[in-house]
């Protein structure tokens, strides 16, 4: 008997991406650059977060034509973003046979209250989280991979760091607390109790956790890896920089060799202009993507 879309098959693909970099791309040309630079997967979307932030308007899933071109152009897995709660965008992306769907706060949410019921799909989902409660709720909804949200399109790593440190701290609490305190922790965090039990059994989050949102340099990537994430998402950081080919490769190298400052130093030389960064304090509260 052959079983497709099992949770092991869904989370298993994310396990295979560990230690790698997933890059946002809007065209097949960019996808090829990402693959040749050593990306483990590409993320297809209509506009990169920095452009969404600058241009405003409603950000939606990518045009199926673009998605198909990207699927045809590379042999690495192709992910694609759907709006939070937009289960039909997700159905469309599944019909296009993308390898992973990112239910993403980078796009304009389609449902003010609910996320997609991800158990209803064969294709696996990755979701963003700022803390352990969010991560556990998304996992309970069927997400097979988590990424910390950071603040997308800013080129500013501070929020990614904040979210990763908080999640690590909360996981340490869950692992060290006496069993009798776990239900109260679940209530405070807004985390389903069963998922906390799974964390205690595994000694870690039950799925892979990548870092995302603001990673723009090789050092940013290496820092997130040293903070304990399983891999890196780069959104605007590559294709909004002066030399995408070189920067993409450098971020990949720094992610692999994150414990070796000598290598991070050498790949960081002469990368040209990094993307323009935005201070988090300058973003009006209603334009923060992470709260979605």
């Amino acid at each position: 008997m052959v079983e497709k879309g099992t949770y092991r098959v869904k989370s298993g693909l994310a396990e295979m991406l560990k230690g790698g970099v997933i890059m946002d791309v809007t065209t097949a040309e960019q996808a090829i650059i990402a693959e040749q630079a050593g990306a483990v997967a590409v993320m297809s979307l209509e506009r990169v977060p920095a452009d969404i932030r600058a241009q405003g308007g409603v950000a939606r899933m990518a045009d199926p034509t673009r998605v198909k071109e990207i699927l045809a152009a590379v042999s690495i897995p192709v992910m694609a973003k759907a709006r939070i709660g937009h289960f039909v965008e997700a159905q469309v992306l599944e019909a296009l046979e993308v390898d992973y769907i990112d239910e993403s706060e980078v796009l304009t949410p389609a449902d003010p209250q609910y996320h997609i019921d991800k158990w209803a799909f064969t294709v696996p989902f990755v979701c963003g989280a700022r803390n352990l409660g969010e991560a556990c709720r998304r996992i309970a909804e069927g997400a097979a991979m988590i990424r910390t949200k950071g603040e997308p399109g800013t080129g500013n790593v501070v929020e990614a760091v904040r979210h990763m440190r908080l999640m690590n701290k909360q996981i340490r609490l869950v692992l060290s607390a006496p069993t009798g305190e776990l239900m109260s922790i679940a209530k405070e965090m807004g985390a389903p109790y069963q998922i906390l039990l799974a964390i205690r059994e595994k000694g870690k989050l039950p799925v892979v956790n990548f870092a995302a949102g603001g990673i723009a340099t090789p050092s940013d990537a290496a820092m997130m890896m040293q903070l304990g994430c399983d891999g890196i998402f780069v959104g605007s950081g590559v294709f909004k920089s002066g030399d995408p080919e070189k920067r993409a490769r450098a971020i990949v190298e720094a992610t692999t060799h994150y414990k070796e400052p000598g290598i991070v130093a050498s790949v960081s030389e002469g990368l040209g202009e990094a993307m323009v960064g935005i201070s988090i304090d300058e973003i009006p509260p209603h334009e923060m993507m992470q709260v979605r």
């Binding site: 092991r8 298993g12 693909l13 599944e94 992973y100 064969t122 294709v123």
Partner: peptide, 15 residues
Amino acid sequence: ARNASGRQVDSFETM
């Protein structure tokens, strides 16, 4: 042959 079993939606478990 790379990806001979198809894309992720065709990934599977079996005995």
